[in-house]
Simulated scan of single mutants.
Amino acid sequence: MAEVSEQTKKQVSATEPDWSRETSKNYWNPVVRLIRSIRFYQKYQNKPFLKGLKYFGVVRYRFWSVVSGADIPLNCKIGGGLLIPHPNGIEIHPDAEIGPNCLIFQQVSIGNNGRGVPKLAGHVDLGAGTKILGDIIINNHSKIAANAVVLRNVDEYEKETGVTVK
């Protein structure tokens, strides 16, 4: 692992979510609306006396999912501060876990390869077209380059390119 300066380590937290990353100054921001609809549904999914709000959350989710072009399931585990600049073509497995302050670009797949699903720790950056497959852990502050295929664990502050096999 390469030596990382203290200033780099302090820039974005891997444990404390930065909720300002999930806000927008204008109304028409499909990604922010999609993430908000997922969080809204998850807030009300286990409250039977507020069943109408749960269904309203599903309708909101479906609308913003179609508009944004992303396949992010309602029941997935997403940490706070998720940033998705271009949501088109993103696919996330329902059992995958995404830590706080992650950055995901377009056409990213986080999924199952028959051996389990991945877990992304805090502040992981995934470039466009990245495929993260299998029962692996992408540790804090890792960066995965565009069009990389990752099939093995990635250490903290590590940068991955190309195809990485166990």
Score class of each variant (00 low, 15 high):
Pro94Lys: 14
Trp28Gly: 01
Glu16Ile: 14
Pro100Ser: 10
Arg39Leu: 02
Ala128Lys: 01
Gln7Val: 06
Lys25Leu: 14
Tyr61Lys: 09
Ser20Phe: 11
Val66Trp: 12
Val124Glu: 06
Pro94Ala: 05
Gln42His: 05
Phe40Ser: 06
Val165Lys: 14
Glu16Leu: 06
Asp135Arg: 10
Cys76His: 09
Ser68Pro: 05
Glu16Pro: 00
Glu160Gln: 12
Leu74Ser: 13
Ile84Tyr: 09
Asp155Ser: 08
Val58Ala: 05
Ala2Cys: 12
Lys143Val: 15
Gly89Asn: 03
Pro87Trp: 03
Glu22Trp: 02
Gln7Trp: 05
Tyr61Val: 03
Ile84Asp: 04
Ala128Met: 11
Thr8Asn: 12
Val150Leu: 10
Ile38Glu: 01
Glu97Gln: 14
Ser65Arg: 09
Leu103Ile: 10
Arg62Pro: 14
Leu103Asn: 08
His123Arg: 07
Val124Ile: 03
Gly89Ile: 12
Phe40Lys: 11
Ile98Lys: 04
Leu50Glu: 14
Ser109Gly: 08
Tyr61Asp: 01
Glu158Gly: 06
Lys143Asn: 05
Ala148Ser: 14
Pro94Ser: 08
Phe49Leu: 09
Asp95Gln: 13
Arg60Tyr: 04
Thr8Tyr: 12
Ser20Pro: 01
Lys47Glu: 15
Val165Ser: 09
Ala148Ile: 04
Thr15Gln: 10
Leu120Asp: 12
Gly116Phe: 07
Ala70Asn: 01
Gln45Pro: 00
Ile104Thr: 02
Gly89Val: 13
Asn75Ala: 15
Tyr44His: 13
Tyr44Gln: 03
Ile78Asp: 02
Tyr157Gly: 03
Trp64Ile: 00
Asp155Ile: 14
Pro118Gln: 06
Lys143Trp: 07
Thr23Ala: 00
Glu16Ser: 15
Ala96Asn: 07
Gln42Leu: 07
Asp18Trp: 10
Ser13Val: 01
Glu3Arg: 13
Lys159Gly: 06
Ala148Gln: 06
Pro100Val: 14
Glu6Cys: 11
Ile78Leu: 10
His141Phe: 10
Lys119Ser: 13
Glu158Ile: 05
Ser24Tyr: 00
Asp71Glu: 12
Ser5Tyr: 04
Thr15His: 11
His93Phe: 13
Lys77Gly: 07
Gln107Val: 11
Leu83Pro: 04
Asp18Leu: 12
Arg39Asn: 09
Asn88Val: 08
Pro94Arg: 11
Phe40His: 03
Phe63Gln: 01
Glu22Asn: 07
Gly116Val: 01
His93Asp: 14
